[in-house]
């Protein structure tokens, strides 16, 4: 156990360092070797800890190991004091405040309700057992909501986005409380 554990740690570290070497020297073969090393290290972790823990540790550990390369490449500049900036002039513009308030309300509340309806209606179409449908729902809801919240905030056509989401949610609600409800 101790030996295989040590081998897994070493593999993760070496793989990250190989990616770093590939990045620092602009040599792709090192980077490819590093990514392949990450895959091998995940297999090694699965061997030590079992599939579930192994995949988790193998995927998470590079976030720490890459600091070997980052620290080696770090450049330090002389610390400067904070620049003295002029004071901010807050201007209370009613329309801008109301619009921002609406965006917050939409992202936090309306999207939660609409995407919950859409996700439930979608996952209940999947040909899998009900517990699997529910598990799929709780996994994809934050992802769908997150991606579409990003899209909404970024979008220049917010009204179109709202209409699209509300219509989809209405169809989902119609299915859930009309068709499925009987």
């Amino acid at each position: 156990m101790t030996t295989t554990l040590f081998v897994s740690v070493a593999l993760s570290a070496l793989a990250c360092y190989a990616i770093y070497i590939g990045w620092a020297t602009q040599k792709k073969r090192w980077a490819y070797a590093g990514w392949a090393g990450i895959a091998v290290s995940i297999v090694a972790w699965c061997n030590v800890l079992g599939t579930e823990f192994g995949i988790t540790v193998g995927l998470c550990l590079p976030a720490i190991m890459v600091w070997l390369g980052i620290a080696r490449h770090a450049k330090a500049e002389k610390t400067k004091p904070d620049a003295d900036k002029p004071p901010h002039q807050w201007q209370c513009q009613g329309k801008a405040v109301a619009l921002t308030g609406w965006h917050i309300l939409y992202v936090l509340i309306v999207q939660m309700v609409t995407f919950s309806l859409i996700v439930v209606a979608l996952v209940y179409q999947l040909p899998i057992s009900e517990p699997k449908q529910m598990a799929t729902g709780v996994i994809i809801l934050p992802l769908v909501w997150g991606v579409l919240a990003y899209w909404y905030v970024m979008s220049e056509h917010k009204l179109r986005h709202i209409l699209f989401s509300v219509v989809l949610a209405a169809v989902a609600a119609l299915y859930l409380f009309g068709v499925a409800h009987g």
Binding site: A74, K75, A76, E77, T79, P142, G146
Partner: peptide, 27 residues
């Protein structure tokens, strides 16, 4: 859920994701 949004938008907002992969300027 908003952390998911921040992850996606953060990755897409980062055009030098590969170029800067190991870059760190302290101070």
């Amino acid at each position: 859920a908003l952390l998911c949004a921040l992850i996606v938008s953060g990755l897409l907002a980062h055009p030098r994701i590969v170029k800067d992969a190991f870059r760190f300027r302290a101070g």
